[in-house]
Amino acid sequence: MAKRIPLEPVVEKVGNYYETVHVAAKRARHLYTVDSYTFEKDEKGEEHKKTVIALMEISEGKICPKRD
C-alpha cells in the first residue's frame, strides 16, 4: 500500500524543495477536505495516502505551482 515517490523528479518540475512541499501540502489538504476517511485510488486502482497522491499528481504534471 505504501508507495515511495522519489522527490528529485518532482522538485525538478516545481523548481525547489520549499515550493514542492508547499504545493504538495496544499493539494493534500484539499484532498483531505473532500474525503478525510478513505485512501485515494490511482489510475491502476491502488490505494495511497493523500500526500502520495499529491506528489504523484505533481510528478505527472496534473498540478503545478502558479508562476509570476
Results as ranks from 00 to 15, higher is better:
R4A: 06
E57R: 00
K13D: 02
A24C: 11
P9R: 10
V52I: 15
R27E: 13
A2D: 14
A2L: 12
D35Y: 09
D42K: 01
T51M: 14
V11T: 13
V14A: 02
R29I: 14
G61F: 02
D35S: 06
E43T: 09
D42E: 03
H30F: 09
K3L: 11
E43Y: 00
H30E: 14
V14S: 05
E8M: 13
D68P: 15
K49V: 05
I58T: 09
K3D: 11
R29Q: 09
P65V: 12
L7G: 08
E19N: 13
R4I: 13
A28W: 06
Y37H: 11
L31R: 02
S59K: 14
T20P: 14
V11W: 09
K41V: 12
I53D: 05
Y37S: 14
K26G: 12
A25E: 02
R29T: 11
K13T: 00
Y17F: 11
I53F: 04
K44L: 12
R4K: 09
K50F: 11
E8G: 09
T20K: 02
Y17V: 13
V34Y: 08
L31N: 01
E8Y: 08
P65F: 05
K13C: 00
S59M: 10
E43A: 04
E40W: 09
H22C: 07
V21A: 12
D35Q: 01
L55W: 13
G15Q: 00
T51E: 12
V11E: 11
K3P: 07
K49C: 05
E46W: 05
V23M: 02
M1F: 10
K41Y: 08
E47S: 08
M1C: 06
G45N: 10
T38H: 06
K62H: 08
G15L: 01
A24E: 02
E60I: 01
H22K: 13
G45A: 07
D35P: 00
K13W: 02
P6N: 10
S36E: 13
R67N: 03
R27D: 08
K44A: 07
K13S: 04
H48N: 08
V52E: 04
E46K: 06
E8W: 08
T38N: 06
D35W: 00
Y37K: 14
V34D: 12
E12P: 00
V11L: 03
H30T: 12
E12L: 07
V10D: 01
K41L: 15
T51N: 05
R29W: 14
A25R: 06
A54T: 10
E46P: 03
A2F: 13
L7H: 04
L55H: 03
M1W: 10
E40Q: 03
E60R: 15
R27M: 03
L31Q: 01
V34M: 14
L7V: 12
K62W: 07
V21M: 12
P9G: 00
I53L: 13
E40V: 11
D35K: 00
K66R: 04
V21I: 15
V23K: 02
E43K: 10
L7N: 01
M56A: 01
V10I: 15
K44W: 07
T51A: 15
P6I: 14
L55S: 01
K3H: 10
D35M: 00
A28F: 09
P65I: 05
V34S: 07
